[in-house]
């Protein structure tokens, strides 16, 4: 037990020293800034063309999400592939009303995704509660507890509008211009 405690403390000390050194010299020093500037465009290109949303269908807009991945509207041509687990995703598509029973689970899904992550509120129900805005069990908009990046209006959202929403998100990511070292180490 004693040995274990000593080792833990030592590794904690080491981690804080390593973070400090990396933070000061690498990220904010000249080497870090050079690496960042060289790789920003490449990093942005990779992020923009491989947005992986989560397999999460709540209500009617989920059927349009499925139709958008069919052969007619083909969302995969802009790089969108649905993944089943939040650990492998970087986009959370909220496509229906959020009820009070669902709220903690949705927040947990959002927390399980790793950085960088974006949230797209699809449809009126996710933006503001939709036609159910003043019932006792629907939360008026998903941005009450999750920060949203792009809002796509519609009831239900046409697949063409959904793909345009994704392209607006891609424009937003391009404007952010974040390289590999400007990320928070999470």
């Amino acid at each position: 037990m004693k040995v274990g405690t000593v080792l833990m403390m030592r590794s904690k000390d080491f981690m804080s020293w390593a973070d400090d050194w990396v933070g000061r010299v690498m990220k904010k020093g000249p080497i870090g800034r050079a690496v960042d500037t060289l790789l920003t465009d490449f990093w942005t290109w990779a992020r923009v063309n491989s947005l992986y949303p989560l397999h999460f269908g709540i209500m009617c807009c989920a059927l349009e999400m499925a139709a958008a991945s069919g052969a007619r509207f083909d969302a995969q041509r802009i790089g969108v592939i649905y993944r089943s687990t939040p650990r492998q995703c970087d986009m959370l598509l909220v496509n229906g009303p959020v009820s009070k029973k669902l709220r903690p689970d949705l927040r947990r899904l959002y927390d399980q995704m790793s950085e960088p992550k974006w949230v797209v509120a699809m449809g009126e129900c996710a933006i503001s509660g939709g036609p159910f805005w003043n019932t006792y069990s629907v939360i008026e908009g998903v941005d009450q507890f999750i920060p949203v990046d792009v809002y796509i209006p519609g009831c239900p959202v046409r697949p063409e509008a959904m793909i345009e929403g994704f392209m607006k998100l891609q424009d937003k990511i391009r404007k952010e211009k974040k390289g590999p070292l400007t990320e928070e180490m999470v």
Binding site: K100, K101, N134, T135, Y136, S137
Partner: peptide, 20 residues
């Protein structure tokens, strides 16, 4: 349909639609 710790019964006439 509602969470297990919900205290009210919504379809009663004295419960208002937008909740408690």
């Amino acid at each position: 349909l509602l969470p297990q710790d919900y205290k009210y019964f919504p379809l009663r006439k004295d419960f208002k639609m937008d909740g408690e």
